[in-house]
Write a protein that binds this DNA or RNA. Structure first.
Lengths: 153, 153
DNA sequence: TACATTAAGGTCAAAGATGGTCAGGGGGAG
DNA sequence: CTCCCCCTGACCATCTTTGACCTTAATGTA
């Protein structure tokens, strides 16, 4: 684990996996202390790896007795489908696209093979069009494939 | 070993052979340092000798803790495979692409769901780029998705 | 109650750390 | 002599890490 962000991400995900209810509560300063990093580094990890579209819900509270609470959300296609499409929007970066695929795989909505295909089709070296059009094509490809899968559920 | 590109290629292939899982992770700058060459030389080697069609899957990441990960894809001995890739070529129409997918499904190389994804990703209304580039992008997307499946075979 | 103090967490911009791209030069095989 | 392959360097894109400064909540104290 070359960088800290990944290590912190893993740490939190392990805690979530070990928790019975998929909820974990921690203190920013304490976690920063544990990894000997700036407290704002924790915010960076939360912002890049535990966003709503990735299936996590983060609540915080400041002041004495403050905390950061992270909850794993389950994906309910009938409810979250539209939200996911809105998240993809007209244009999406490779990183965010992959985050969405990672979530769908975690939720077992797509198989490992299907996830690999989705990722492959989103690569920058595959969609050889200049930005910002590449992100637009990626959004279209991703949505088209997801719609195709939707028909089977 | 007259030229450096070959030496670097051999170096990486040796590492892959020695690895138990056919995956090797390295750092571009470090490898360039080892061979006393420009970092971009590594990209040249990757681009010319470790392409998807040659059975290698390359993933990279920038920034702190960045890396280059190379995975050997399992070898598919069938002649059909190579033939299919030649058929796809650099560029392919939607109709011909769909014909290939139909055949893959008949031969049970891909599931019904996967076939639906492949077709969806090849649509002309999805790949909104003007001809002849659309056919080029379609060929790249199709090949990338099929090669991604080789990781599982 | 009002205010001060302490204890959290939040934001954002800048710097650092990698890898990517592309145009162009050099050299050898036909 | 030409073409193709190799190689480099300047400039670009992306991801990480930190630090200075800000906001909010709980608690102590007059």
């Amino acid at each position: 684990m070359a960088n800290m962000a990944d290590a912190i991400e893993q740490y939190i995900k392990t805690m979530l996996a070990e928790s019975s209810d998929g909820v974990v509560e921690l203190q920013r300063s304490q976690l920063a202390e544990l990894f000997s990093c700036a407290p704002s580094q924790i915010n960076y990890v939360l912002a890049t790896r535990f966003q709503l579209e990735q299936g996590y819900f983060v609540e915080t509270r400041r002041g004495g007795g403050g905390y950061v609470r992270i909850t794993v959300l389950s994906f309910d296609p009938s409810k979250d489908w539209q939200l996911m499409f809105d998240t993809i929007g007209e244009s999406i970066s490779q990183a965010r696209g992959e985050a969405i695929v990672a979530r769908l795989m975690r939720e077992e909505y797509v198989t490992e093979r299907e996830a690999a295909m989705l990722k492959a089709a989103m690569g920058r070296d595959v969609l050889t069009v200049n930005l910002p059009w590449r992100d637009v094509i990626r959004a279209q490809v991703l949505k088209a494939m997801l719609i195709a899968l939707r028909k089977f559920s």
